[in-house]
């Protein structure tokens, strides 16, 4: 086991086959070049702050809209992907497979391809977040629904209900806290992700960050990073408060 791990690690360090060339000297060289950039990062230029407000609002709008639309679509898909709410193995596995494929695409890869498809702006960002959230919510909630107890299923079946009736009247209200939890979680993730989507042209604060980085304006970059940090923390606090209330 240990030998295998060491061998694998060694292979990852072999540049000829694509492995990473470990070049500490280069690192040191670059690092001395980068020292002044670090120094600049540590002196944020707060006068830049007003210019970040509009892109930041755009970022938040993408995050909220993406999470909201994904939340709506996630309901039927989750019910189709969970065993208690969809006893048909064929459709269940099909939905699960699609969700797994969706989840295997990294967020920024979605954004890159979507930007190329529908053009620069908030639309590809919104679509990226929507698809990403769909993957997160459907996967996690359907697994939670799978592992929960559903005694009322038998009662619904015994009363002659169709699966759709049972799902709508019992499984869905019963799983509501699981959904709410993941919807809030996807909103939190969205704020982080939407902050970087602009790097590939999908709108929001990331575009500004990429632009200032391109101009080597690291004092502005650090303002943006600080702002993202604050917004992420604030959204997390709000989301945690909501989560407690929803229990």
């Amino acid at each position: 086991m240990v030998v295998a791990l060491c061998a694998f690690t060694a292979l990852t360090c072999w540049p000829a086959i694509g492995g990473v060339e470990i070049d500490l000297a280069g690192l040191v060289r670059n690092w001395s070049n980068g020292a002044d950039k670090i120094a600049q990062l540590l002196r944020p230029d707060l006068t830049f702050l007003p210019r970040t407000v509009a892109p930041m609002l755009e970022t938040l709008a993408m995050a909220v809209a993406g999470a909201a639309f994904a939340a709506i679509i996630s309901i039927p898909l989750t019910l189709a992907a969970a065993r208690p709410s969809n006893p048909n193995p064929l459709t269940r596995q099909l939905v699960r497979f699609c969700i797994n494929v969706n989840r295997a695409v990294p967020d920024l890869v979605f954004a890159t391809v979507l930007v190329a498809m529908v053009g620069v702006g908030t639309l590809p960002g919104f679509l990226t977040l929507f698809l990403f959230d769909l993957g997160v919510v459907v996967k996690l909630v359907s697994e939670a629904v799978d592992s929960a107890d559903h005694p009322y299923l038998e009662a619904g079946t015994a009363a002659g209900g169709t699966q759709a009736q049972i799902n709508r009247a019992t499984v869905l209200p019963q799983s509501w806290p699981l959904f709410a939890n993941q919807w809030l979680y996807s909103l939190e993730l969205n704020v982080r992700i939407s902050a970087i989507l602009g790097i590939v042209g999908a709108g929001g604060i990331g575009r500004l960050l990429d632009e200032r980085r391109g101009f080597f304006a690291y004092d502005d970059v650090s303002v943006i990073i600080l702002e993202i940090l604050v917004v992420v923390v604030v959204i997390e606090v709000i989301s945690n408060a909501l989560r407690r209330r929803l229990r």
């Binding site: 005694p151 009322y152 038998e154 009662a155 619904g156 009363a159 002659g160 209900g161 169709t162 009736q165 049972i166 009247a169 019992t170 209200p173 019963q174 509501w176 806290p177």
Partner: peptide
């Protein structure tokens, strides 16, 4: 085990009986 949906109101639980 009663087999009620705990988070659902009593009325909606009883309406399960009207499914068919």
């Amino acid at each position: 085990g009663f087999n009620l949906a705990d988070r659902v109101s009593v009325l909606d639980n009883v309406l399960v009986g009207r499914f068919a």
